[in-house]
Computed example of a mutant assay.
Amino acid sequence: MVKYTDDFKVLVVREYLSGTIGYNRLAKKHGIKSKKQIIDWVNAYKLFGVEGLFRKTKHTNYPVQFKLDVLSFMKRTGASQTVTALHFKLTNPSMIRDWEKKFLEGGVEALDTPKGRLAMSNKAKNVEKTQKSSHQDELTREQKLERENELLRLEVAYLKKLRAFQMEPDAYLEKHRQHYHSNSKKNSD
């Protein structure tokens, strides 16, 4: 995947917003593979300002329930990843695709795994894997059951929200709109 500099994104967005050139010609002019990339940048710029185009220096960990809410919204409304990301004030729509893939492959538990990698040598990685597997073995039966219960609670909450939306979509969206906006403000602080 091509990484574009923040300055380049700002330049392209401002050129589009000047109104002299459309998405397709702009993509061709700057050698950008798809006009969709420019559309995403323009939408992020309109919603978040210049900061919406900048790469995040701090990784945000979203709670599993928030991820489920995002996936549920996208499924219920049929919204695209881009529209869903804008609705939840997320600057990276591809993150939703990753969440969806994890959920389909491993269920709710897969959404609970942190993204990213640790910077360490191979030897340190092997030591850490050994420690991690021994730690998993050390979990008591009770701890395993508690973890399973928590994941099942999350899944039930997800299904309840999905059912509530299916019964009355407009009422559900209005009720939760303010909740989502207040959560996104907390995450950005």
Rank of each mutant, 00 (worst) to 15 (best):
W41L: 03
A44Y: 06
K46F: 04
F48C: 00
L53K: 02
L53W: 05
F54V: 13
K56N: 12
T57L: 11
H59C: 07
T60V: 15
Q65E: 03
Q65R: 07
F66I: 05
F66T: 04
D69R: 03
D69P: 03
D69Y: 03
D69H: 02
L71S: 01
M74A: 11
T77R: 08
T77W: 06
A85F: 09
A85H: 10
K89P: 08
S94L: 14
D98V: 15
W99H: 08
W99S: 06
K102S: 11
E105K: 09
G106C: 05
A110T: 00
L111Q: 04
T113N: 13
L118K: 13
A119P: 03
K123L: 05
A124K: 06
A124H: 06
V127E: 12
E128D: 11
S133A: 11
S134V: 13
H135T: 13
E138N: 12
R141S: 11
E142P: 07
L145W: 11
E148G: 07
N149E: 11
L152Q: 10
R153M: 08
L154Q: 03
Y158C: 02
L159S: 00
K160V: 00
L162Y: 05
F165E: 01
F165D: 03
M167Y: 11
E168F: 06
P169L: 01
P169G: 04
D170P: 05
E174Q: 13
E174H: 08
K175H: 07
H179Q: 09
Y180W: 14
N183G: 02
